[in-house]
Design a protein around this nucleic acid. Sequence first.
DNA 1: TCGATTTGACCTGT
DNA 2: ACAGGTCAAATCGA
Length: 384
Amino acid sequence: MAFGQDTIEQLYRELAGGRHLSAKLQALLEGPLDSRGQKEAVDVSRELGRVFMVSLYMLKPCSNSSRRPGEVTRTAPETRTDDSICLHTPARVKRVRSEEVLVKNGREEVVTRTEIITPSPYKDGYQWRKYGQKNIQDSNYLRLYFKCTFSHERRCAAKKQVQQRDAGEPPMFLVTYLNEHTCQQPQAVLGTPNTAGSSPTTSRQRQSSFSPPAEVLDLTMNGAGLFSRLLLPHAVGGGGRGRGSAEEEAAIVTCLAAVISGGAAAAAPPPLIWPTSAPEASQPSGVDVPAFVASAGHSPSAADESVADEAAAAKMADMDYCFGQYDPSTFGAAAADHRVLIGDDGDVQRVVAARIADMVWPRYTRDTSAWETAGTSSMRGSID
DNA sequence: TCGATTTGACCTGT
DNA sequence: ACAGGTCAAATCGA
């Protein structure tokens, strides 16, 4: 199963969001339900259903099962010859980037243009403000126009257009990003690509969108490094807090690791970069541990090693790149909480893990209205 | 009350 | 003239 970086991004967001929706639904149902609570529960349930639908769709197996065990899955997706419909092939989630020179008021302006086809056009980590929508000729759907939230105060020229392409399950959207973000969000400091995404936000989220210097990290680190460590159960375990227990965190990380690892993991030995032994405390009881995690103590033969190493390195490089695309501005002040959860020992990898976790959860945990109101209901209302 | 969204009007390029 | 893009007053909602 060849996962593209876009798929991993989306899958991670969807599943992590779904996890919190589930907790939220449970909390709602455990308490007395007035009409408002009931409506909220229905909304959460509906959103949860969508999360499942999108996630399952993304995981839909491809028919290219002819790959040999352990084979590195880095074939250019464009070269696929089977006609299976896989969301994670660039035929479904693709990114086209171009630059055009426009002459405006006698001045030449370089406009970067990135087009993405995705089922999740709104949750991309950036902060946008909707400023218009238009009926477009030859299209059944509205085109929505967004500017960077900081367009005025920081003269950021980044814009985004979202247009639904079809009414499939899930519906696909063409997202066009225009111009680079020039606002001094942490991403600029990091030097990572900055036209990667969007997420309509509220003022509260804006307030938490800047990280202290200690959180300025090099998310562009490549190779078998960052992501591999992020997925290590023992690296993200430990500590704990209230409802979001370490077990839950570990379960999610573990499941995601299994999902992302895909079929190759079952056939290939565990990558050498996997821990040779994980602390017992990191294996939560009652959590299904994927084979490749459970067998982490496996000692591969020398022949295994090169194949596994290469495959693992390739996979991790993909994942690291994938997370390098995230806008760290999303890792808001809430990261502090996750640092408590994950470990506050200054370990860079743990902080990165905290920030990635923070990227996907606070949308619901801290500002549900932002996600549901600004992010989905209003705009979806005009799309659906 | 304030910030975000909506939506009709306006602007610009073809 | 038309379509796409943007503006800004009105409206909404936390």
